[in-house]
């Protein structure tokens, strides 16, 4: 199908975009890569009256390689991360995740900001940035605030973003040279949304160990017991599986069926094994 009629505007600065969004009283949507929004409009699931095109805003294209972290503008595309055309704080984890996300033609357009703002439960970036302990900067005419990636999404397609806020950038701590990670995406076909997604990061030098489950019928879940096992540096597979199962028992509100539960345990255990192997 074709999208219903709407108005289109391409502001020249972030300030102008914020002003347009603030005065639109909920009738406008930001257009970044359009790889989710235009599909939803073509399917007539979304029908905004105005699209504010932020894809070319220079403020959202900035990439800063700092001392202990990297700041990536919301407009940076999946393909730019895949090709390491922007600094990689994650020692290969982010390019690996990017390459497994959708197809090249979609990765050339789709952005990290769009993915985080949409908060599709099966998307890669919400889980990957939560596992890396990233922070999100959001901007509005009222000012800026910083939010943890873990917890940014509050439900299925729901986030902490207010109606007048624009996601400006993501700040990601750099992994130390000795850090290890694991990444497992289970999907029926390469490029499809994940049926199960697990991201594990162990950075003993920074005393940081975390394993996050994506595709979790809601926001990504930080697996506390499994993260603890990871911190102890144990690689006993039965113990890892037991810890993941205990974490899933605590996430009863996600209503995983037996098949999903099985996939989640397999994905998490494999990701932990990649770290400890």
């Amino acid at each position: 199908m074709k999208a219903p009629a709407f108005d289109y505007v391409r502001p020249q600065s972030l300030g102008e975009a914020m002003a347009l969004l603030a005065k639109s009283s909920g009738e406008a949507r930001l257009l970044a890569g359009g790889q989710s929004l235009l599909a939803l409009m073509n399917l007539r699931i979304a029908a905004p009256a105005l699209l504010i095109d932020i894809a070319r805003l220079p403020e959202l294209a900035a990439a800063v390689d700092g001392v202990d972290r990297v700041i990536l503008g919301a407009g940076i595309t999946h393909a730019m991360i895949e090709d390491t055309r922007v600094p990689d704080p994650s020692r290969g984890l982010m390019p690996r995740a990017a390459a497994s996300l959708a197809y090249r033609a979609i990765r050339n357009r789709g952005t990290i900001g769009g993915s985080l703002a949409l908060a599709d439960p099966a998307a890669e970036w919400p889980a990957v940035f939560a596992a890396l302990d990233g922070e999100i900067t959001v901007a509005s005419p009222r000012g800026r605030r910083s939010l943890n990636c873990a917890g940014f999404s509050t439900g299925i397609y729901e986030t902490q973003l207010a109606e007048d806020e624009i996601l400006e950038n993501v700040r990601i701590p750099k992994l130390s040279p000795g850090a290890r990670w694991g990444y497992v995406k289970l999907a029926r076909k390469s490029g499809e949304f994940a049926n199960a997604l697990a991201v594990a990061v162990a950075d003993p030098a920074r005393r940081f160990c975390r394993i996050v489950l994506g595709a979790a019928n809601g926001p990504p879940i930080v697996l506390a017991a499994a993260s603890q096992v990871l911190a102890e540096g144990r690689s006993d597979p039965d113990r890892l599986r037991g810890a993941v199962a205990a974490d899933l028992d605590r996430a009863a509100d996600r209503h995983f069926d037996d098949f999903q539960r099985h996939l989640n345990i397999v994905a998490a255990a494999r990701a932990l094994q990649q770290v400890t192997a």
Binding site: Y8, A55, R104, I106, R109
Partner: peptide, 19 residues
């Protein structure tokens, strides 16, 4: 619908002509 925009493949069904 895949074509090249600025040398890179994109979905022309998920790209607006105005953009």
């Amino acid at each position: 619908c895949t074509i090249l925009v600025d040398g890179e493949p994109v979905r022309s069904c998920l790209t607006l002509a105005v953009a």
